[in-house]
Nucleic acid binder design. Structure first.
Lengths: 239, 239
DNA sequence: CGGGGCGTTGACTGAGATCAATTATGGTGG
DNA sequence: CCACCATAATTGATCTCAGTCAACGCCCCG
């Protein structure tokens, strides 16, 4: 029993039980660590990466740009997330990935992933499941983009980030680091930065949240969840 | 060489080469066929299905309902799609699935999927890849919902459906069966049925499409793609 | 032939975008 | 420690795309 288990092992184990041998080969395969500064592309649309990555520390996001220069943010990633497992099977990137903050990654060469998954069906299943949860999160965002108003959508995003960070021990007292500009929040929710500002003010004035600088404190979790109609089922946290 | 290969085998083979043995066990595992009428729920949010399904004929869609009774359609499915592989690994449904038209399904009991994927890493990889393409399609829809206007979003949806149906031989002359009401199109794109009606008229008057009843004919594929800024990369059709 | 679902159109409304300043804030160099 | 700069947050005024409401027509099916 590690006191601080490998984040990848911890995450995959939360999806499927692993044998001690599987844990060990996972640790071996992800020994290579890489550090990146904040606000920097890690992969770009159209590229063909040769590694997948596990986020160990920091925050990243996926995005697409339209020809008119608009940006849609497709997901945010927190420590423990395997944010580009898909590049192992889908050769060409259909979106870009960038850091929000300085980040530490564990590098998983596709070659190693192939070997791991062919030899250990349990690892394959756990990685597959990780990508399915990722897809479930994307579907939930579609509901925000299509059918929730600005206040509901913002509340929902905040609930989700608190829940996901809490699952990796980074939301003490429902307070989290939120290294997002209002423009980035807008690009995630399909809103303008101006409207995000006004919507944050609404939530603040309703005493649901406190948000200053990069720190979010949820003041009234129950009411925030109610505004968002937040049901964490889609995060598939409890097995 | 089958003249009319099993749709599941054909689909998975387009993702990863399979051995003759793998093809055979896939055929064996999906012998059970089920038929359903149109406009009927196949699975509901919160349920724990014991089968996955391959769509053989007809069209289905995923959706979520908000507490206010609004509906967001999350995806459409065409023959060959494994539209709920996720239920194999994520016990509880986070959305519902319904038929648009009368449908024929091949039933894949989770038990069989587990055995297949544990014994045949190639099948596991192909099924995994199918769910990754599904996620890529969801991400592309997020761009429509968040950052495309009604005309761009509608054109993009039509391009996607034509491209996906064409890949399974069901879009001769860029003409397809489109068994969607304008309300359903709106629920997919985050628009009202009224606005969908007006947007269809725009595309019709611009002589980009002809749409009567359930038949869509693309009159000017190049211009329709241009309006949508449609780049089929995200469908990952060519290997 | 009558009714319900769907498509179509018009009139009005509204949530959120855009434009344009102005005011924090945080990092930097002196 | 402080002036300086760029970036981000905030606010007000105006505009617009798309929603809502309401009516009517069409068509299929019983």
């Amino acid at each position: 029993m590690d006191l601080q288990p490998h984040p990848l092992v911890r995450r995959l184990e939360s999806y499927c039980p692993l044998t001690e041998q599987e844990r060990q080969v996972l640790r071996d395969a992800s020994r290579e660590i890489a550090d990146f500064e904040g606000d920097r592309d890690l992969v770009r649309e159209g590229e063909r990466p040769v590694n997948s990555n596990v986020l160990l520390d920091g925050m990243t996001f996926r995005y697409r740009l339209t020809p008119e220069g608009k940006r849609q943010i497709l997901s945010f990633h927190v420590p423990g997330d395997v944010f580009d497992a898909q590049s192992f099977l889908l050769a060409e990137m259909d979106h870009s990935v960038a850091t929000l903050t300085p980040c530490r990654l564990a590098v998983l060469p596709h070659r190693a992933v192939r070997e791991l998954t062919e030899t250990h069906p349990g690892i394959a299943r756990a990685l597959w499941k990780a990508t399915l949860v990722d897809a479930a999160i994307a579907r939930e965002w579609m509901v925000s983009l299509g059918r929730r108003d600005a206040q509901q959508a913002l509340a929902h995003l905040l609930c989700e980030l608190v829940a996901r960070l809490d699952a990796v021990g980074r939301a003490p007292q429902r307070s989290i680091e939120l290294p997002l500009t209002q423009t980035e929040i807008g690009d995630a929710l399909g809103l303008s930065n101006v409207h995000v500002n006004r919507t944050i003010r609404e939530l603040r004035e309703a005493r649901l949240i406190a948000l200053q600088g990069r720190r979010l404190v949820v003041l009234d979790w129950e009411r925030l969840k109610a505004v968002a109609a937040f049901n964490p089922r889609y995060l598939h946290h409890d097995v």
